[in-house]
Design a binder for these strands. Structure first.
Length: 641
RNA sequence: GGCAGGGUAGCUCAGUUGGUGAGAGCGCGGGAUUCAUAACCCCGAGGUCGGCAGUUCAAAUCUGCCUCCUGCUACCA
């Protein structure tokens, strides 16, 4: 019997537009699902949108439209985005779906009938932003710490769910079930939280204050608190209590969430399930957040990365790869364009893409455009095959342990093995000897065959790119079944189309070629030094704006051994800040007041946090810098040519 | 303040129950090579494993104290 795997993303609150956080959770869930499917599981993948609550009502009002129209609009943004990110969810639920509403009411009624929901008068400080009452001790200077404004005093009746009754049960559950919450640190966090007495959960909002929600079945004057409503989507989507899907998939439910909603999923949700008489989820899988340059990604900081923008730059599949590879699942991870492109170039372009390209090219050139025949195999082939059999299993284990980053690391390591194998066997040399033809075939076949396995392993992460790769290998468009990710199954004689680079190498933005690289490249090779040299036309030179500058002040750049930052007068009526790597050769005092040559139309860059709007020219003798000076009688701003 | 998790090569991080000279990728330096996307392959430099003290024949790995960062939570364990 097939293993069954049901996994959900949170349903996203339509108060904000889709961003990288949503994209990461959803892509991770998609990748995990596709891997499980590859391993033969019967999978079901749910995502959707959370659409009730006060913030939605307010946002709608602000936009001057009805809440329903508002949520329709934003929900649609999520729904249409997922296919663009190669997400293959089985269902998209909305909490405004009639089936969901019915389910929520039914469960509320059930718990109410059991006597676990009661009415209580409550007076307290209410923060509209948080949509909850706050304890005075939570306030900072009288303000809500999250929303920076004072909560309002509210007195009202509300319904409460007797969650506190489940505290002991939940503590025991967490204790017994070591892997219930993954990674374990989040389990610790919940355990820690449960050391304090659990409060009952307020699950209603009076309609006088908020109408946008699901009406309580036992009191028309109230709607349901949005979290109570939202969490139930995981079950309502499957047709609780009698739906076929519910019966089949519910016992195998996994929830992927970001660490920001740990408490709702780790505390409220199991208590709710217990009260509703449902089995609790099998596993809560918690991931960290993407941070940008060390600071949290937030709207207020204006550093939210738009996943669709990144998609255009990297390509969807490479973005998926980067997100999965660079975040240690569960930890926070840093996100920058440079990191993404470095990862892309290193793993995808240079290692895997180039492997595919070189293997196919050599096979085509030597075997009439076809997959070569496999001859007798030797030790090298045996070793490689061995590593791959183990490697495939290792990847599977990492995925089952919710460590996709480890799995991908391993795949690239395997890819390197094939590159090494090729280098060891030197097929380009074998091709020169007629008598080595059989050996040549064996080597190239092996390289292609192993590459095929890599393509199979990466299919869940990069479905479109790996489809292209399969076509390049003459395998057709169909995915490769897991049991075929084993050596020797490539068919000799299959025609190989002319390859084009699957992952063309990208330029890291802002990173010019390093001086060392240029030097190395232009190292004169004795006599023929002019041979490879590129000559510029005069108009090319004139693109550069060279000017005389006057260094007014100069100081060392903090924490940098090499950098000096100068304020330079270029006769522009303002001073430019220019960073130079000369601190090893000049003190700031020595540079102050000098007249120098400046490249004035160089793109502004930041070096060690300092803005640099140009370049001061030095002679560079094997790294030893000497300032090029202009005569004192030349005024700042004068052109040099 | 309490609790949890971190502080390991320039950067991002691995390091199982303490035990051969502390690792990977990227970056950097050198070499080799030319099939390939100036890719690949080999070699190398670089670390007081946050600090101090202790346990031990032996500690990045255990204990205590200190320090810094992150998260949760708050005057209460």
């Amino acid at each position: 019997m097939n293993e069954i795997f049901y996994i959900t993303t949170p349903i996203y609150y339509v108060n904000s537009h889709p961003h990288i956080g949503h994209a990461y959770t959803t892509i991770a869930t998609d990748v995990l699902t596709r891997f499980r499917k590859l391993f033969g599981a019967d999978t079901y993948f749910l995502t959707g949108t959370d659409e009730h609550g006060q913030k939605i009502a307010e946002s709608a009002a602000k936009s001057g439209i009805e809440p329903q129209e508002f949520v329709d609009r934003i929900s649609q943004e999520f729904r249409v985005m997922w296919p663009h990110l190669h997400i293959e969810n089985d269902q998209f639920i909305r909490t405004t779906d009639p089936e969901h509403k019915a389910c929520v009411q039914q469960i509320l009624q059930k718990i109410y009938d059991q006597g676990e929901i009661y009415l209580k008068e409550y007076e307290g400080l209410y923060c509209v932003g948080c949509e909850r009452f706050m304890d005075e001790s939570e306030l900072v200077d009288g303000n809500c710490p999250d929303h920076q404004n004072p909560p309002e005093l509210h007195k009202e009746q509300n319904y409460f769910f007797g969650m506190s009754a489940y505290q002991d049960w939940l503590v025991a559950e967490l204790e017994q079930n070591e892997n219930w919450v993954y990674p374990a640190r989040y389990r610790n966090e919940l355990t820690q939280f449960l050391k304090a007495p659990l409060q009952d959960l307020c699950i209603s909002r009076p309609k006088s204050r908020l109408e946008w929600g699901i009406e309580l079945p036992f009191d028309k004057n109230f709607v349901t608190y949005v979290w109570f409503d939202a969490l139930l989507n995981y079950a309502s989507a499957l047709g609780w209590p009698d739906g076929e899907k519910y019966k089949k998939y519910w016992p195998h439910v996994h929830h992927t969430i970001g660490k920001d909603i740990l408490k709702t999923h780790g505390i409220y949700w199991p208590c709710m399930l217990k009260a509703a008489g449902m089995p609790v989820f099998k596993k809560l899988v918690v991931h960290g957040h993407w941070v940008v340059g060390g600071s949290k990604m937030s709207k207020s900081l204006g550093n939210v990365v738009d996943p669709l923008a990144m998609k255009d730059q990297l390509g969807v599949d490479a973005l998926r790869y980067f997100l999965m590879r660079d975040m240690s699942f569960g930890e926070d991870a840093n996100f920058t364009e440079e990191l993404a492109i470095t990862r892309y170039n290193g793993d995808l372009a240079n290692n895997l893409g180039n492997l595919l390209n070189r293997s196919i090219s050599m096979s085509r050139n030597n075997f009439e455009g076809c997959v070569p025949p496999l001859g007798e195999i030797g030790e090298l082939e045996k070793d490689l095959r061995n590593s791959f059999s183990k490697g495939v299993e290792t990847c599977r284990e990492y995925i089952l342990a919710f460590q996709p980053h480890r799995a991908l690391e391993h795949v690239v390591w395997l890819s390197s093995l094939v590159n090494k194998y090729i280098d060891n066997c030197k097929p380009w040399s074998l091709a020169k000897q007629k008598e080595d033809r059989e050996r040549l075939g064996t080597v190239l076949y092996t390289a292609l065959d192993m590459t095929r396995i890599l393509v199979g392993l990466l299919d869940p992460v990069m479905p479109e790119k790996m489809r292209e790769a399969r076509i390049s290998l003459g395998l057709g468009t169909e995915g490769i079944p897991f049991e075929k990710l084993t050596h020797g199954l490539l068919e000799s004689g299959t025609e190989l189309p002319k390859p084009t680079p699957l992952f063309p190498k990208m330029q890291v933005p802002g990173a010019e070629k390093t001086p060392a690289k240029i030097q190395q490249k232009e190292k004169p090779t004795s006599a023929a030094s002019d041979e490879g040299k590129e000559w510029f036309a005069l108009e090319d030179f004139q693109k550069m704006e060279l000017k005389v500058g006057h260094i007014r002040t100069c100081r060392k750049v903090e924490k940098s051994a090499k950098l000096l930052c100068s304020e330079v007068d270029l006769g522009e009526g303002r001073l430019r800040s220019i960073v130079s790597g000369a601190a090893e050769f000049y003190t700031p005092e020595e540079l102050t007041n000098r007249r120098v040559l400046v490249v004035a139309n160089l793109k502004t860059v930041k070096l060690m946090g300092e803005k640099s709007e140009g370049m001061i020219l030095f002679s560079d003798d094997k790294g030893k810098l000497i300032l090029i000076e202009a005569p004192d009688e030349v005024n700042p701003g004068v052109t040099v040519r």
